[in-house]
Write a protein that binds this DNA or RNA. Structure first.
Length: 429
RNA sequence: GCCGCUGUAGCUCAGCUGGUAGAGCACUCGCCUGUUAAGCGAGCGGUCGUCGGUUCGAACCCGACCGGCGGCGCCA
């Protein structure tokens, strides 16, 4: 048994091959039928002739329907009339499942596509999306493995919020109330005292009633935490990591990028060094970037989109005012009104994909910030312990892998970047 | 949480300021000597999201509810 892509080869011309898969398209005339067979690797046109198969077998083959499953034995040939350049003349075949009616057809709405994701996944476009996603996830892990990091597994069920309680999912927990994690950052910080350089890829959950093109209720959060480094070094690592992932995708999924219509040259622009700008510089330039802002304004979706339409490569924005960021970020010792943090905004209007920076590592400073934010120290006892015992400078980041995937594939909605999106209005399939 | 849009056949949609529903695709059956999500002919297929109201009469008007999509805030 061979894969479809492996039989599309000059070496096999005139040879008998056997492939199996699903009917991608089927067309028939009185004496011949064309079955375009799909497997995970590619599609190939197979031609069945009544003179080779006999009328009974020919009828069984030519009456197959879309997404029926079968195996085919035949001779491979070069043929420019076939979509992928080669054609298989069918000598024999075996049907596994003949479908009555496959629900997904050429005219489907986005709603129908979402209701039938379990079937839509088979489409050529979504197969490519899944392949690219796979490369992105592997690329993220490989980059960190190759640079001496350890992968760790934080808990998904937690007892406290990371940044505020309103957006947590509640889960019954043996008479107690547990929550689904919305970020693994605090747990990641615990691991650096053992392993120093760690990363994780795990889901995060946000019960925000968001309805936007770039929010999910359950999303894949790639997080890293690194001992002994500051904000600038953290950004350099992230830039190298994004470059690494982009190179892998362009190298390994070039065909898939073509299938989904991604302009690869535009994507290559982001292999160049990323731009960096402080928040204050951004405010100063905001007028000329088409989005007048005043100091203290947060960046919303419109602002990010407008700003990033000016850039072809990602942009780091650093040194946000302290009041715009959560309590654990470290204020700049030379100017405590701003913090040593960064957001990474993706180009082509995509906006924020990473948030990161230095963490406060002084115990008293952290306690003060917890108090200032109206939070309770006892909820963070173990997080404070990290500052009590052998505290060190460190930095980290969180990357939305689905957002990264959406940008890399130039999709217009994050729901197209994940196989089974979870949103306020969608829990199935 | 706020704002907007939407629900008619398996799918995509049409249906005129109210008169008991139609097309294309899919599927089934024919026909066709090379098709490119082919072509031709026939057939199958709908409590018009649900409930209530107005009316002689409702897919259409009114109300409530349910489902979905888009946008904002929040963030990754």
């Amino acid at each position: 048994m061979q894969s479809v892509s492996s039989v599309l080869s000059d070496q096999l011309i005139g040879k008998e091959v056997e492939i199996r898969g699903w009917v991608y398209r089927i067309r028939s005339t009185a004496k011949m039928c064309f079955v375009i067979l799909r497997d995970s690797t590619n599609i190939v046109q197979c031609v069945g002739k009544i003179e080779d198969l006999g009328s009974e077998r020919f009828k069984a083959l030519s009456s197959l329907t879309i997404e029926s499953s079968l195996s085919i034995k035949g001779i491979i040939r070069k043929d420019t009339r076939a979509t992928t350049g080669y054609e298989l003349t069918i000598k024999d075949f075996a049907i596994f499942c003949r479908n009555e009616n496959f629900p997904v057809s050429k005219d489907i709405s986005e709603e129908f596509e979402l209701d039938n994701r379990h079937l839509w996944i088979r489409s050529r476009e979504f197969t490519s999306i899944l392949k690219i996603r796979s490369t992105i996830f592997k690329g993220f892990a490989d980059f960190f493995y190759e640079n001496g990091y350890y992968q760790v597994q934080p808990p998904m069920m937690v007892s406290t919020a990371t940044e505020g309680g309103s957006t947590l999912f509640k889960v019954p927990f043996f008479g107690e109330e547990a929550f689904l994690t919305q970020s693994s950052q605090f747990y990641l910080e615990t691991f650096i005292y053992s392993l120093e350089k760690v990363f994780t890829i795990s889901p995060s959950f946000r019960a925000e009633k968001s309805r936007t093109w770039r929010h999910l209720t359950e999303y894949w959060h790639a997080e890293g935490e690194v001992a002994w480094i500051g904000n600038d070094e953290m950004m350099k690592i992230e830039e190298d990591m994004i470059h690494y992932i982009l190179k892998k995708v362009i190298d390994q999924n070039y065909e898939d990028l073509q299938i989904i219509g991604r302009n690869v040259e535009d994507l290559r622009e982001s292999l160049k060094p990323f731009n960096r700008m402080t928040y204050a510089e951004l405010i100063e330039k905001s007028e000329s970037l088409g989005m007048p802002l005043k100091y203290g304004d947060d960046l919303g979706a419109d602002e990010e989109r407008t700003i990033m339409s000016n850039f072809k490569t990602p942009l780091f924005i650093t040194h946000f005012p302290a009041e715009l960021k959560t309590f654990y970020h470290r204020p700049d010792p030379s100017n405590p009104a701003v913090i040593l943090c960064h957001d990474l905004l993706a180009p082509e209007g995509y906006g924020e994909i990473i948030g990161g920076g230095e963490r406060i590592w002084d115990l008293q400073e952290l306690r003060q910030r917890i108090k200032d934010n109206g939070l309770r120290e006892e909820d963070y006892y173990w997080y404070l312990d990290l500052r009590r015992y052998g505290s060190i400078p460190h930095s980290g980041f969180g990357l939305g892998l689905d957002r990264l995937a959406m940008w890399i594939m130039h999709l217009d909605n994050i729901k197209k970047a994940i196989p089974y999106p979870r949103t306020i209005r969608r829990l199935r399939p």
